[in-house]
């Protein structure tokens, strides 16, 4: 199996990918932050992207829902195509409607109650009634363990609670794919577990997920596939036990030896 072009877990996996990056390139000025990235994700798959800060891993998943423009290549998400240089047109919003995202800094809306944070998009984008949206919000908040806080405001919750609300907010749109951009990096250590638990649950329910994280133990446990990114390139990818225990590439080895040591 060629590490750079492997697109599915195994040769006999013939599911149609829900995400396909095809020779995607992105520059920040002189910096080539994504170099000919090819990556596919099939429905139900949990892909964890690891790499040093500045390696381009966050940029990669931010391209998938069009928060970052790219300069060449193409990205297909759930049958819609994102094009280079912001030429995606209508498909950009269509993709974002089907793809949820959880951010490092939570990015809850501070002027809205927890309930309104969760119901805003389903009401305005999906056209749900307030009643229907509220019922969904209640169910989702219960699922992430914050049902009794719906009338509070984000600043009244702990970081871990806020991130779980952010998860519920994204799930309220009934996404086909979830993106996580370092979801636990801004949390106090004692709150990391509760967010990872909620994500674990989601993975168990079959959600397709792309996760950028530094939590290697979590990656090993939930990932179907781990992708190691360095210098804007996918260096190596494979099932977690293969990548963590028998990394083939020298750069992967040196990265892992640094992050797994302590």
């Amino acid at each position: 199996m060629n590490d750079n072009t492997a697109t599915t877990l195994s040769p006999d996996d013939d599911r149609q990918p829900i995400v396909r990056l095809d020779r995607v390139n992105k520059h920040f000025g002189d910096l080539h932050v994504m170099q000919d990235i090819d990556l596919s994700v099939v429905p139900g798959e949990v892909v964890v992207i690891i790499g040093a800060s500045g390696s381009g891993k966050s940029t990669l998943i931010r391209c998938v829902n069009g928060l970052e423009p790219f300069q060449s290549g193409r990205i297909e998400v759930d049958g819609k195509t994102l094009l280079p240089n912001g030429a995606s047109g209508q498909s950009l919003r269509a993709v974002r409607t089907e793809v949820g995202m959880v951010f490092q800094q939570f990015n809850l809306f501070p002027h809205l109650s927890i309930r309104d944070n969760v119901t805003l998009a389903p009401r305005k984008v999906r056209g749900w009634s307030r009643q229907q949206a509220n019922a969904t919000a209640e169910r989702l908040l219960q699922r992430v363990g914050i049902a009794d806080q719906a009338d509070k405001y984000p600043s009244q919750l702990s970081g871990g609670q806020q991130q779980r609300v952010a998860l519920a907010r994204a799930l309220a749109m009934e996404p086909r794919l979830m993106l996580f951009d370092e979801p636990t990096s801004a949390l106090d250590p004692e709150m990391i577990g509760e967010v990872l638990d909620a994500m674990r649950e989601l993975a168990k329910d079959g959600m397709t997920m792309m996760i950028v994280t530094h939590e290697m133990g979590f990656a090993r446990e939930v990932a179907d596939r781990v992708v190691f990114v360095h210098g804007g390139q996918i260096i190596e990818q494979g099932p977690p036990n293969q990548l963590f225990d028998h990394p083939r590439h020298e750069r992967t080895q040196s990265f892992l030896s640094r992050v797994l040591k302590h």
């Binding site: 951010f103 984008v125 907010r169």
Partner: peptide
């Protein structure tokens, strides 16, 4: 207003105008 607010709105499928208006 932090850039993340706009990004969160857009990532939920809200249009640019809706993101401005509601968030």
């Amino acid at each position: 207003i932090e850039r993340g607010q706009r990004e969160a709105g857009l990532s939920l499928g809200l249009s640019s105008t809706q993101t401005f208006q509601y968030i």
